[in-house]
Amino acid sequence: MTCHYLRKRGKPLANDEQKNRSPRNWPKLLGWTVVPVLLLAAWQISAVHLQQPWLFPPVSRVVEQLLHPLRQHYASGSLLMNTSVSLLRVLIGFALAAVVGIPLGVLMGSVRTIRGLIEPLVELLRPLCPIAWLPFAIAVFKLKTVPQLFGVRFSHTILDHLQLGMIFVLFWGGFFPILVNTLDGVMGVRRNYLLLAKTLGASRLQSFVHVCLPAAMPMILTGLRQGIATCWFVIIAAEMLPGSDSGIGYLLIYAADQSAMDIVIASMIIIGVVGALLSFIMRWMMHSAVIWQGKE
């Protein structure tokens, strides 16, 4: 955003360090400090005036909820527990999607026959919203959980909330962004680098390992980032649907039924913050893994 702003004025792009110190950055500074504070103040004042906390709770009550993440909300558990359940589901679904998506994308990108065979299927299934898999997943997996896969009926841990159906849906959410980006990355490797490797004595396998994979790495990581973001979207939606009994999305809809708007808003804030954190962590990992990206 800052780049755009500077470029419009015909100024050369400053490097990151200068950009942050530049006095032109005051809108961003205010945007992070004064604007939110003003908004919160306006919210608090109007909520106190309205006196309808089931519709529009004051900030203080939401903050109070956020400060007590371990408080049990009837049968639905605490904020922290439900957030952990959602995160754990996402991480497992996402990991599965990566474990299948990356190798398959690499394979499709490098073997034309496999690409030809699988691509139509991918194009057909990809536009399908992952949530649309849920009824099917529930019908197939019933309410089976991960521990039950290993013959444990109840482990009495958080693992009992890892329904296979949820993970199945999350898998589809993460799978396509990862697959498609990996595929594009592998297919987009500059031929010049492959030729260079060949003249320097690389075998086909070596070219693949030492040229294709590193060259595709930025795209693979982009896929992972999109994948985890999609998974986080999908889990919230899936948990809000009937048939779910835990997760932050479930707590959100449960609290809404109880007209506990403070918990609803606290859940929304948690969902936003966790999503932003996931994206931030992925971006940070990308940054350190491919410092050369975009600088060829």
């Binding site: 680098y193 490797a197 004595g201 590193p214």
Partner: peptide
């Protein structure tokens, strides 16, 4: 094997440091 080619562009692998670019052929 021993007939390398130096191009005008895309001469070094952008994901490798200079040292590891020069060692590339030996690594292979």
């Amino acid at each position: 094997d021993n007939i390398p080619c130096v191009f005008q562009h895309y001469t070094l692998f952008p994901w490798r440091t200079l040292l590891h670019n020069v060692t590339f052929g030996l690594e292979m």
